[in-house]
Computed example of a mutant assay.
Amino acid sequence: MNNLQKNGYAKYDLMTSLDYEGIEADYKEILDYFEDLPIDDYAPEANRYRRYSRALVLPTSGTIEWLPTMQRDGEEFSAYFQGKFNPEHAGSYREFHSIGPSIQNNRLLQEIIMANYRETFWKEEDQIMPIHVGVHFVKLMVESDEDRAVSSPDCLHQDGEPFTFAHLVERSNVEGGTNAIGIPEVRGRQPEEADEGDLHEIFEITKPLESYGVYDSKVSHYVSPVEKGEDDTPGVRSVILIDYQLTVVADMDE
């Protein structure tokens, strides 16, 4: 039993554990890609930028297959549905600009996806079907002292997918971006509104590929808004979020 299964969350240092020849160049390619993420069309005032794509992990072969995208005005989009779990977009589909093929094929991104997958756990009968993977590239960026960049949802929450992992790509000249892990019952609250005993840990990820994962049914989680630090450069906090869920088989009795 790993820490994710035992505690409901776990922390990682993937730059160390995934170390291979060429990892720095692969990381730099991902870091550069984050510079031009498009604005989140669903919250243009939140100083949030993002791309999203979907893939399958095939358990028998341990390979990754990226799913097709949709065409909108000559651009590629991928759909995301979080059901009731995001109070800001409950019950609605959102379409995000897709992650480009060159980054989908980046070795480091694929290594991260598979490292996360190996941390997950499923019933034996579930592993005969592909595991669905959602990959979010999310950047919070503030350019003035008055700006705030906010994650969605801005409260302790659960995602609805069984497992979600967050990997830091860049943290530069920011205040905030603090993570909190709590019991499921405090979802919908701010960390300061929860009793101290209902929060497992409050921490920050600060180094490239410093990461954490959550087992959704066992915990709630949160990241605080980002504000600009003391330097004259923009404040940036960029992360890769990766979620994992089962292939759902239709109930023929419905």
Rank of each mutant, 00 (worst) to 15 (best):
3 N>T: 15
4 L>V: 06
4 L>H: 03
6 K>H: 10
9 Y>A: 00
10 A>G: 03
12 Y>H: 10
12 Y>P: 01
14 L>Y: 15
14 L>Q: 04
14 L>H: 10
17 S>A: 05
21 E>N: 12
24 E>D: 14
24 E>S: 08
24 E>V: 07
24 E>Q: 12
25 A>S: 06
25 A>T: 09
26 D>L: 08
26 D>G: 08
32 D>P: 05
34 F>H: 03
38 P>K: 04
39 I>N: 04
44 P>W: 11
45 E>R: 05
51 R>Y: 12
52 Y>R: 09
54 R>H: 05
54 R>M: 12
55 A>D: 02
60 T>K: 07
61 S>L: 09
64 I>A: 01
65 E>Y: 07
65 E>L: 07
65 E>M: 06
65 E>K: 08
78 S>T: 15
83 G>I: 00
85 F>L: 01
87 P>I: 01
88 E>R: 03
89 H>K: 03
92 S>Y: 00
94 R>C: 00
94 R>S: 00
97 H>P: 05
97 H>T: 09
97 H>F: 14
98 S>H: 11
99 I>D: 00
103 I>Y: 05
105 N>H: 14
108 L>E: 05
111 E>Y: 15
113 I>A: 06
115 A>W: 14
117 Y>W: 15
119 E>L: 15
121 F>P: 00
122 W>G: 08
123 K>M: 15
125 E>D: 12
128 I>V: 15
129 M>Y: 12
130 P>M: 03
133 V>D: 00
133 V>S: 01
135 V>N: 01
136 H>R: 01
138 V>F: 10
138 V>P: 00
143 E>D: 07
153 P>T: 11
154 D>M: 09
160 G>A: 07
160 G>W: 05
163 F>N: 02
164 T>Y: 02
165 F>Y: 13
165 F>R: 00
166 A>C: 10
168 L>E: 04
170 E>F: 10
171 R>I: 10
172 S>N: 14
174 V>S: 01
174 V>R: 01
183 I>V: 15
190 Q>M: 13
199 L>Y: 07
202 I>E: 08
202 I>D: 03
204 E>V: 08
205 I>D: 02
208 P>D: 05
212 Y>V: 13
213 G>R: 04
214 V>Q: 00
220 S>C: 15
228 K>D: 02
231 D>K: 08
232 D>C: 03
234 P>F: 02
234 P>T: 05
236 V>K: 09
238 S>I: 04
240 I>F: 13
241 L>S: 06
242 I>T: 14
246 L>Y: 04
247 T>K: 13
250 A>V: 14
251 D>E: 11
252 M>C: 03
